[in-house]
Amino acid sequence: MQSTAEVPAVETRALRKTYRSRRGRAVGVEGLDLVVPVGGVHGFLGPNGSGKTTTIRMLLGLVRADSGTARIFGHEVPRHLPDVVGRVGAIVESPKFFPAFSARRNLDLLAAAIGAPGGRVGEVLEEVGLCERARDRYRGYSLGMKQRLAIAATLLKDPDLLIFDEPTNGLDPAGIREIRDTMRSLADRGKTVLVSSHILAEVEQVADTVSIITRGRLIASGSVAELIGAGGASVRVGVADTALAATVLREAGWVVRPDGRSLMVDGVEDPAAITRALAGRDLWVDELVPVQAGLESVFLELVGKDEAAGSRHDRRVRDGRHTTVEEVTA
């Protein structure tokens, strides 16, 4: 039996969800194994359509999984969600409130529904900086204010786990920074924040740990520092004929992407090998600068590799050869 300290905030095992589509069943989440440790900010990253929102909806009991298990603080959900829902606050996609009601009225309704103590609405409005506009109608709010109100709603229960799905969508830089600061502040107070996003620079600044999914499957997980380290160094390469140089480097097995008038080569262990490869084709390097890898480059590298493996797998299946994803990836 697991001790309390070992129980993750969120844990999924082989979670799967498919949807009916015109072409049959479309896979939303495919055997997802996700672990979110207690405390800190955990970034849940993936391209659009990779299954982030579907996973969050399954955790919150809004969507029924086809198979697999999900647990929040050790409680199996959705079966035992009522036992743990008081410890969970969540915003899924854009906030949804009654447009004709004020912020305070909307929160009063929710507070009454969950039996939040008197004065809690005022506290959370204060916490997100909406006190002065609390009596204005929700429909007149800016996107940033709507998002802050949604966060206020999640705080009504004083939850231990906060789940934010794409919380900075549509926000201006100031709004993004406010949300980022709020998430950090909540984590610093001992809360666990699970934030899904495809804006990697934002997540990198605030997350302690991340999980990366694509096509409904987990492809990497760990601390931000570990993942950036695992990605290997990137090198900016200046060369006159970037198109030919990119072809040469890709043929040599590197992951190459354009970077202005230069090329960025990811996962480089020995930069001198780049020089040798290009010189062998009479391409002369005029710039070779090691660049500290960011989460974005690691993400692009991992997702790119996975999608390439996926398309190879798709081709093999189309050709009538039964090959598993694992075999192809290996």
Binding site: G61, L62, V85, G89, V92, K96, L110, A153
Partner: peptide, 14 residues
Amino acid sequence: STGAIGLWLTFEPR
């Protein structure tokens, strides 16, 4: 249609 039911269900999943 507004999706407010989803918000309610995150507060009361029963």
